[in-house]
Design a protein around this nucleic acid. Structure first.
Lengths: 331, 331
DNA sequence: CATAGTAATGAATACGTAACCATTTTAATC
DNA sequence: GATTAAAATGGTTACGTATTCATTACTATG
């Protein structure tokens, strides 16, 4: 391994000067600059970023703890986050968190020197929040938020839930069902809350409607779908708390020979990229802005790294994207 | 920042002993072990992995240069690679390479201390190969391979191409078209070569068939599809070099009101996870093994990190996955 | 030409850890 | 209790860079 000392010796200057050539070349004479650059060239010198990180106490690495990519939402956000970070000179360490490995990931991340953390996996009442604040490590959550109501970028989940209910109602559907996720996550909690609130306002009793709270795994969604199919009074519309759930339900529907939307109306939330595919064409609720939630979060995070301004509370407004998995109810 | 020196002072031992407690506790008395562990606890000490990397010359980081996630193939491989690496104690730095930013990424990666590189973006005749060998940095390519025929895990691309042609032929389709990618990549080259070879064997002249070589962008695929639609003699079957292309073509078909497979048969290669979705249900060619190509590659890479055995040439055999985007031709 | 001021360079040090080698402590055997 | 071997601990250094401070080399001004 050739170091800056080797370069210095080869060029007949001090190691300090080599460092200057790389970092503050304007403080170096043209003549010595050339000498050093030539030496760097000849020796194929590559600066050691680990050593630099040690002395500067900055790694240039941001840790992303994402959900798994079989959820298309995280495909979109991971793409946006990684690319934005790279364009701004940061490297991204990626983890895909699941219920099983999340604790292991947290330990690994907390023991690693990372300039900041961007994650979505936080629970509404998660002890991780305090740990991060205590360690004074900059972080932001996207999609979900913590009860302490800071460091987050989300969509207006309650409004999204309301739009889902109102959309189905306006299409004539009153036999609805809801497939959600763990209520310990702000997204699922908020969407469900908005959904129920809207139904209440519309005069639809929610206590008789089938509500299911899954762990969002394929297995549980399948189990839930089979329960729905076997209901005495089958719902005409399935309201999924996320596009990921909705798209999985679509696959199950088609597998069983049901038609969409003739047999089941389906609606999701998130407006993931995949939902636009003409084989899917999922009616959904998503951000009004063209931007991606991951982009917004990583942009905010990089801002706070500059300014030490530790206050990010961003809730993006939402709207309906009407596509082909929904239709007017025919009696 | 609390260091191992602080812990040492607090526990009344040397920094060396603190280091031993963390790395070789069996060399330490129970009594001092406890003292040190208590000090660690009280001071909330977290070892600095950067300093450790510097002295050990190992970072525990592997760099993944993947293609973009809007290609579902890379969704599958990225998932497999990141998870496998994490399970084995490695962190993964992720980049999503495109034609535009690839050069920038290479520069960034080469200047960073990474234990190894796993990438798919290599060209058949890529100067990067020599650079990596020269720098003596362990690496592996998945999916694509370099002409120097080493450090790769791939599928049998030629065979895949043959299966595509034979499948369509056996269904009665002889008006075929091919939508491929840059022939500078071993995948596209091999698949196209196998496709042509099989057609030749079947007695179908390839010189009159419409072959298109795109850059795999949505824009070019769309342009190609429009050309296909406007052909005098419209092909009855579209053979895509990858599932990503096939799935994009499906969306374009449906958007224009064509039916699949009534108006167009469609087949891909890769057998990506998404192709199994019942809204897609794409006929495709993929690995016989249940494993993922990314898994195989990262597993091989980690092996070579242990053994310094620098020879990986793995070509996985393939088979047909017959689904619903293909059907017997009716005259 | 002297002098002050600035530009350019170098020497020494810190960053936080692991590793090497030396030293002290403990245990074991006679 | 003496001697020897083994176990446990500590002192020092290396890793490769940026930074701080000191020093030397220039330049400009009168």
């Amino acid at each position: 391994m050739v170091s800056s000392k080797d370069v210095a010796k080869h060029a007949g200057v001090s190691q300090t000067t080599v460092s200057r050539v790389l970092n503050t070349p304007e403080l170096v004479t043209k003549k010595t600059l050339e000498k050093v650059l030539n030496a760097i060239e000849e020796l194929n010198y590559i600066p050691n970023d680990i050593a630099r990180s040690l002395v500067q106490k900055k790694t240039g690495v941001i840790t992303l703890i994402s959900g798994p990519l079989h959820n298309p939402f995280f495909v979109d956000t991971t793409t946006a986050i990684v690319n934005y970070a790279n364009e701004n000179g940061y490297k991204i360490n990626v983890y895909f968190g699941t219920e099983d490995n999340l604790h292991t990931i947290y330990n690994s991340v907390l023991e690693s020197k990372t300039d900041a953390i961007i994650l979505s996996s936080i629970l509404y009442d998660d002890p991780l929040y305090d740990k991060l604040e205590k360690l004074n490590i900059p972080f932001i959550t996207f999609n979900r938020k913590h009860k302490k109501d800071n460091h987050y970028v989300e969509i207006d989940n309650e409004h999204a839930g309301r739009i889902v209910a109102e959309t189905m109602y306006s299409l004539g559907h009153t036999d609805l069902c809801w497939i959600g996720g763990p209520q310990t996550m702000s997204t699922f909690y908020g969407r469900h809350k908005g959904f129920c609130a809207a139904l209440h306002n519309l005069g639809i009793a929610t206590d008789k409607l089938p509500f299911y709270f899954t762990d969002t795994s394929k297995a549980e969604i399948k189990a839930v779908f089979e329960m729905i199919v076997s209901l005495d009074k089958r719902p005409t519309a399935i309201c999924a708390a996320t596009d990921a759930i909705a798209i999985e339900v679509m696959s199950l529907c088609l597998e069983k020979g049901f038609r969409i939307p003739e047999d089941f109306n389906i609606i999701g939330i998130d407006n993931v990229e995949l939902s636009r595919h003409h084989s899917i064409n999922l009616t959904t609720v998503g951000m009004k802005s063209e931007k991606n939630l991951g982009s917004l979060a990583i942009a905010q995070l990089l801002e706070t790294l500059k300014e030490e301004n530790a206050c990010i509370r961003q809730t993006e407004s939402v709207k309906l994207f009407l596509r082909n998995t929904t239709s007017k109810k025919v009696d």
